Simulated scan of single mutants.
Amino acid sequence: MKLQHHIGGLEGLDPINFETKVFVEPWEKRIFGIHTAMMALSNHLGESRPNYPIGQVPTQFKSFWTWGHLRMGAEGMNPFEYFRLRYYEKWLGGISGFFVEEGYITQEELDARTAQYLEDSEAAPLPSGGDPAIDDQLLKYLTEGDSPLRPSTDTPKFSLGDRVRVKQVLSGDHTRLPGHIRGRAAEVVKVYEGAFTYFFPTADGIGTPMPVYSLAFKATDLWNKALTDDNMVYYNDIFEVYLEAL
């Protein structure tokens, strides 16, 4: 697993960015909008909750795209590039690479269009137009979302107050398990109702609906005592497949 998933409590990652603005540059809003539109037009929405009539939406985007895919693209980056680039620069790289991989544009076409905008953005205006049916789908998605909650079919393995240990799951692919809590003990402080799925199956076991728990870790069990104190508690929500009885 890449370095960027083991940074919980890691020292020396200066400089720390305390920027509070959601969007620092105007182009970042457009990247966020593109990502949102891709999620709202993803081909999996016909089987999601709520169900969307995505096959009737007149869009040329026919691919599978979710938050998970965006995160997977960031995880595939070289760790040094990951820390060098700003937040929406990572998004831009992942989304651009996805469109090339899916065949919507070639790398040569992307490079040529990029050079055109860099040379004179006013001479290369952005596309205009749109389709009201696509706009309606985007607004519906923004309002109703894409819920991972499913009816519970299995009894949760753990109960409130149980002591559990996070498994040492080693995965070179996409994961939802933070590196700094692997192998650590915790207490179950909440068992969420229902079961939760993930957008797609991963090599380390998530994808099918399963219970999710809120765990409480003693901060001193995770980090050097010089960096914390005995009264600090760290919470994390974890899929059941990542846990074992202590």
Rank of each mutant, 00 (worst) to 15 (best):
P53H: 09
E25T: 07
Y87W: 12
G97I: 03
M72A: 14
E240F: 11
D230M: 08
Y82R: 00
L170K: 07
T36K: 04
G130H: 03
G207A: 04
E244V: 13
E187C: 06
L170F: 15
Q56D: 06
D135I: 11
L110Y: 12
P132D: 05
T143P: 01
M210L: 05
K140C: 08
W223T: 10
P125V: 02
D120C: 00
L139H: 09
Q60P: 02
T208P: 05
R71T: 12
L222N: 03
I34A: 03
K140Y: 11
K167G: 05
T228W: 13
F217W: 08
I95L: 03
L126F: 13
A195C: 04
G8K: 02
M77T: 04
I105M: 13
A133V: 13
Y213C: 07
L70Q: 05
D173A: 08
T197I: 14
P156S: 05
G129K: 00
E122P: 01
Y52M: 03
F61Q: 00
M39L: 15
D173S: 14
V100H: 00
A245R: 08
S121L: 08
R30P: 02
R150V: 11
K21A: 10
Y213A: 03
T36L: 11
F80L: 15
A195R: 00
Q137F: 15
G194A: 02
H174T: 14
D136I: 05
P125I: 03
H44N: 08
S63L: 08
K190V: 13
V169N: 01
G145A: 03
L10V: 11
S42W: 04
R30W: 09
